[in-house]
Simulated scan of single mutants.
Amino acid sequence: MKRNSLLFFILLSIAIGVEYELSSLSDLELSTGKYLELLSSFLLLSIYIIPICAMLVIYAKRWKVPKYIIPLSIVSGAYGTGWLAGYGNDYLLEGLKRLLGSSKALEAWSAALTAPFVEETLKLCCGLIILYLLKRKNSQSAFVVGASVGLGFQIIEDISYIIEAAQDSFQTVVPKTLERISGGISSHWSLTCIFTVAVICILSKTQLNNKSKWLWLVFPITMHFIWNSPINDLPLISTVISAVTIMIIIQMITFIEANQKNQHQQVRVFK
């Protein structure tokens, strides 16, 4: 009963998300030519989408994680969490305004005080629901599912930013697209991946030192907070965040590889 309820919830969220995202695109008052240009700009996002998907396919095969999990998780992350995050961010911001009052400081820090907590929580829950429905609780599956959910969310968020740019001025569409691509290497796909693996390692009591455990658990929200805050306006901050994020991903892959090797050795000894 619980599985059926969760399955219905995620399918309903995806259905709502599809309608929500397509309506925002169809509401644009653009000529056919402009629509084609806008859709072409979406294709530029493949600059980061293809390499990340290729990496996920490679590691899914290496870790014997079913490849169908990748598109399933991408679609769930894109349509099942994107629209919820939009409403969640707005409601949380309204709550902060009522609590703290409107001010320039709150306006400057609003993205940092809302998105990290709302978006990272929703993406994590989506990933955990998928893992629960598929009865997979190892760190390998958590890595693939978490990264795929985050990638789906990242794609739909980038598209929404491009659409917003088209509404303001069509001349800003390509610059906005390139701006989104520049941060794509260490955006939502990596943060959700780290968060999901950290939680699964804790829930499954995987052998992991406390330093790495807490680092992985706190890192996604902390980095998302810094990325969305005025701190990111300082020189080189975004590049440092990207470098550190990729280092954590490499560390996580190394841990998963070593953990899988130890499991295989234990099985051989037992036999």
Score class of each variant (00 low, 15 high):
203 L>P: 03
39 L>W: 08
69 I>E: 06
103 S>K: 12
258 A>L: 07
199 V>N: 14
60 A>Q: 01
235 P>V: 13
19 E>L: 09
129 I>Y: 08
236 L>A: 11
42 F>N: 08
185 I>T: 06
218 V>P: 00
196 T>W: 03
155 I>S: 00
88 G>Q: 03
193 C>H: 01
113 L>I: 11
229 S>I: 12
196 T>S: 11
55 M>I: 12
176 K>P: 13
247 M>T: 07
7 L>H: 10
259 N>F: 00
179 E>S: 15
232 N>R: 11
47 I>M: 02
153 F>R: 00
197 V>A: 09
152 G>Q: 14
136 R>G: 07
110 S>I: 13
36 L>V: 07
98 R>H: 14
168 D>F: 03
62 R>M: 02
132 Y>V: 12
263 Q>T: 12
231 I>R: 15
257 E>P: 06
58 I>R: 15
224 H>K: 08
233 D>C: 07
157 E>K: 03
270 F>S: 10
63 W>C: 12
4 N>A: 15
195 F>I: 03
178 L>W: 00
123 K>G: 02
71 P>H: 10
221 I>Y: 04
248 I>M: 14
6 L>N: 12
72 L>R: 07
143 F>G: 07
35 Y>V: 02
184 G>D: 09
68 Y>F: 13
211 K>M: 04
224 H>M: 01
267 V>D: 14
50 I>S: 08
59 Y>H: 01
13 S>R: 10
25 L>I: 08
165 A>R: 14
76 S>N: 09
234 L>H: 04
116 P>S: 05
236 L>D: 15
236 L>W: 12
150 G>R: 03
229 S>Y: 14
130 I>A: 03
189 W>V: 09
230 P>L: 06
197 V>E: 08
208 L>V: 15
228 N>G: 05
222 T>P: 08
179 E>L: 14
86 G>T: 08
209 N>K: 09
216 W>M: 08
27 D>W: 03
15 A>T: 01
271 K>P: 01
118 V>R: 00
109 W>E: 07
90 D>I: 04
166 A>E: 00
186 S>V: 02
168 D>G: 06
222 T>C: 13
106 L>A: 08
104 K>G: 14
180 R>I: 09
145 V>F: 13
38 L>M: 00
174 V>R: 13
67 K>G: 00
182 S>E: 05
213 K>S: 13
51 P>V: 11
166 A>F: 01
90 D>F: 10
161 Y>M: 04
160 S>P: 09
